[in-house]
Nucleic acid binder design. Structure first.
Lengths: 210, 210
DNA sequence: GTCACTAATGACCAACTGGTCACTAAGCTC
DNA sequence: GAGCTTAGTGACCAGTTGGTCATTAGTGAC
């Protein structure tokens, strides 16, 4: 099973292997950490834009300015890359500590700020897209996220039916994210950050506190 | 560009073409309408289970008990099949006519009944999954659906911010659908139909009517 | 029966996919 | 500068995909 050298003359046309972008441009250097970080960022963006199924390793490699062989070298498989790029700790309903009465406002502000900062390419969008396309790893991640939220809220918000209400808040935020950052059309998509916060607060309050 | 006959002897091994399932079993008959309907149903199920990107024409053909060539013959392309199988008229918030005060209850019941009837394989699930995987045709369908809802509610529910509130109801239902029929875990997924209606009504009322 | 029409089949194709691996060459230590 | 380690490359592969098309065979009209 000998492999042929790079300049093997057989099959001069056809089967041109890895397609080279128009500009390699960069001299070959060794910067494993820099490369790794670039791949992770490219992966987050690509997964957020197209979901797991439609994102190809070659596309991620192209964005990161490396070959797809290097992506495989660093992360082993597409799924492991996904798990490295979309951390499970990304809890949507973070910053819960504080007065329960102002909790809905804190959730809304925290959510909007986070989404705004990432320019709509938050890993949460990647997660939603990937879960929808049936990726099991993404499903596990989202389930874990939901379980985390529930645990955090359990000791803060009292009353029966707490689980259902927290779960409903999560569902609502998923739906809002879907409208605003996936479908990207309609009133929810065209609101400014401030308008969105104002719109979300009473709804979150109603769902969470009744 | 002559094609070779079926029993061409070259390449006796390898390239065995269409893989045959274990049981063809059915005699070859001509029933175009029956086949067409079977393909459409198989497509709806498959798209709802896996979304557009991950569903293959061969999988649909297998479920419908036909060859993938026939699917292509009837529908021309995967996208056209999708558009034929997931009708745009499927409005989530139908049955709006009636007393505005009981509108949230009617929306909730209509939604739950519809999802329950299809056993979680409603075309709406297919739509959500496919939009999330970046399918443009699905995006157009969902946008049209949202526009339809807005138009229907515009003359029923008065007051400023109507667009945003209707849109928010849509987002909420998308999120609930996502939790219950895509992620299939957590409180929203384990509720009975009746419990879900009871849970949804006050939330829909709060979002829609303030 | 035979003929025309066309539903249905399945072999084929080109493009693309995730993944493998022989090779190349930076950059370190001595 | 020789030698080692290993980051980085790109040719390659096998499997899968959406799509094409020559061929086969029901079915109704005559």
């Amino acid at each position: 099973m000998r492999r042929l050298g790079a300049m093997d003359a057989s099959r001069a046309t056809g089967a041109l292997g890895e397609d080279r972008g128009p500009a390699p441009a960069r001299k070959r250097t060794r910067e494993p950490e820099v490369r790794r970080a670039a791949i992770l960022e490219a992966a987050r963006d690509a997964f957020a834009e197209r979901g797991f199924a439609r994102t190809t390793i070659r596309e991620i490699a192209r964005r990161a300015g490396v070959t797809h062989g290097l992506v495989m070298r660093h992360f082993g498989s597409k799924e492991r890359l996904f798990l490295a790029a979309v951390p499970s700790s990304q809890n949507l309903m973070a910053e819960v500590a504080g007065d329960p009465a102002s909790l809905p406002a804190r959730i809304a502000r925290s959510y909007v700020r986070r989404m705004s900062n990432s320019g709509g390419n938050d890993p949460f969008v990647a997660l939603i897209r990937s879960v929808a396309s049936g990726e099991e790893a993404a499903e596990r991640l989202l389930r874990a996220m939901q379980d985390d939220s529930l645990e955090m809220y359990r000791q803060l918000v009292p009353g029966p039916g707490l689980e259902a209400r927290v779960s409903s808040v999560g569902a609502y935020l998923i739906g809002v994210t879907f409208s605003r950052y996936v479908v990207r059309s309609g009133p929810l998509a065209s609101m400014s950050d401030e308008e969105l916060v104002d719109h979300l607060v009473p709804n979150l309050r109603a769902i969470l506190l009744g």
